[in-house]
Amino acid sequence: MSQTNKAIQQKSTNSNAKGVKVLLISLGVIFIFIMLVIPMIAVITYAFQDGLKAYQEAIFDPYTIKALQLTLLATVTAVAINTVFGLFAAWTITKFKFRGKQLLTTLIDIPFAISPVIAGLVLVLTFGKIGWAYDFLNAYDIKIVFAVPGIILATVFVTFPFISRELIPVLSAQGTDEEEAAALMGAGGFNIFRKVTLPHIKWALLYGIVLCTARAMGEFGAVSVISGHLRGKTNTLPLHVEILYNDFQLTSAFAVASILVILAVIILILRNLIEYKAKKAGEK
């Protein structure tokens, strides 16, 4: 008798736990649906509301293509620069002991902490007409503010913690023993990096690159301040979307936005693929 009671009780606690589980899952799904899925669907439907032709026109508009090119250029350059920088920074921070290490680690995080708009303003203040570097830059005929280099600089600035942040935990967990062992056998720094360190950080590095790419493509605030919105010259995709939107060209705006959405989806798939592969490599 008491046993059946117990069994019933257990069943009820079990079904309680199950209820909580279902509740939490549905909450999560609903939240994601409202916040992410519906807006994304909205973007796509809006983009196509005037038919395929209007969509095509918006996409193949020369300004859109220019903006796409600039976005890709800024992204690729920023990711390349940050990969190199992130590797160096993470390596330095984890493999050497030196004064001010804590400070350097904190400095790397600054772009996470300050608003991108402020980052853009800082760049304008430094390199713009009122900036202290202006005379020097002018003398050599280098244009940064309201020009492509400024866009790239802003993107680099905003995204630079992503890669080093991914690498630092992995590198510091590894310690320096394996590198020392390799160095003792006479291996040079590059060989050690390629053969010993890189296999270890490969997945974290790829993951960092993906995150960095996603962030770089979507960057708006800092770029908006420094670009000057010169159509066909310093307009990136997100800025172009804004301009179209403000011009009440809604269909075009959403069509261009859909490019960004598609790129984001591609990146997300890449991200999951990397995570899956890394997990498998870790299990081996």
């Binding site: 023993d177 394996e178 020392e180 062992a181 003792l184 053969k195 010993v196 296999p199």
Partner: peptide, 15 residues
Amino acid sequence: GIGFVFQNYALFRYM
């Protein structure tokens, strides 16, 4: 020209 065996071996774990 020294061979060194580390306390925790420090084998290259990805090789």
